[in-house]
Design a protein around this nucleic acid. Structure first.
Lengths: 145, 145
DNA sequence: TAAGATTAAATTGCACACAATTTAATTTCA
DNA sequence: TGAAATTAAATTGTGTGCAATTTAATCTTA
């Protein structure tokens, strides 16, 4: 067996596992907000800027309309966001926080700390990992045209 | 806005982005093998040991039968694996590589190197990241009973 | 040993993620 | 200016990932 093909020797599997594990760690806390993890990410972006187009959300989250359109319809059903065609360009759909959507931020503000506590890992170690990952993501993106 | 709620200040988003990015980097190479990324992971595990139960695969890949059963049926349709009930315990399903499944390893052996080249990142840096992630995964798992 | 508990897969249902295509609006430029 | 190109979302279809439930087999133990 080629060593390179061994699961343990590949980077991809730890990254894939950690990503799933983190989402699973979030689940109990996000369940209380009635949000999925990708929905939570969309809300994070909207809490930074309360109105954005579908494209802007997609660019920040690296998601396309095939993923975002149904997700945003679900957030609309929960009355956390509203979806309106732009007046100046009818192709564009503007997503805005509703009052409920804004108020949810209060509850969500406790999530990051809850999560860090639940993972039992030193903040410094998480910070190191974050910087390492961001560094690699930057390099990957540099080499995309 | 709470700083902790800012997307850029959270670890979760870079991990989530990197995991998706890595799967996307694999895609062109795995397309040539007619495998999805999770199917590739299953094949990696089977190339290490040509016969395993669904539970054993699930334990190594952190996947349950709800995910594995349909995935394995697709690998069976492609004639890469066979699925047979255990003779000694009819509850258990044994997954075995077929001849085709074994032969695919030859082609797959080039994938890891192709991937590293396509990412334009130093092997040392990837290795550092891998160790860092595995370390954190270990700690998370320690605190799960 | 027979009822109840446990276990392994399968099934069901929901929500992404992404490729490919479609639809509708806007832009470009010949 | 009007046809062709481009753009933004939506739609369609496939394949995960996971919770919850179901089914069938095996184990436990009173």
């Amino acid at each position: 067996m080629t060593d390179q093909l061994k699961l343990e020797n590949q980077l991809c599997f730890p990254v894939y596992s950690l990503a799933k594990e983190i989402v699973n760690q979030y689940r109990p806390f996000l369940d209380k907000l009635d949000l999925t993890y990708p929905q939570y990410l969309v809300m994070l972006v909207l809490w930074e800027q309360r109105q954005q187009t579908v494209s802007e959300l997609g660019e920040k989250l690296h998601l396309d309309s095939g993923t975002l359109t149904p997700l945003l319809k679900r957030l609309e059903q929960k009355e956390l966001v509203s979806r309106d065609r732009s007046k100046t360009d009818e192709r564009v759909v503007c997503i805005s926080l509703t009052g409920n959507g804004e108020r949810l931020q209060e509850q969500a503000s406790k999530v990051p700390e809850q999560l860090i506590n639940s993972m039992h890992i030193a903040v410094e170690e998480l910070e190191t990992l974050k910087i390492c990952i961001q560094d690699i993501l930057t390099k990957i993106n540099q080499h995309k045209k």
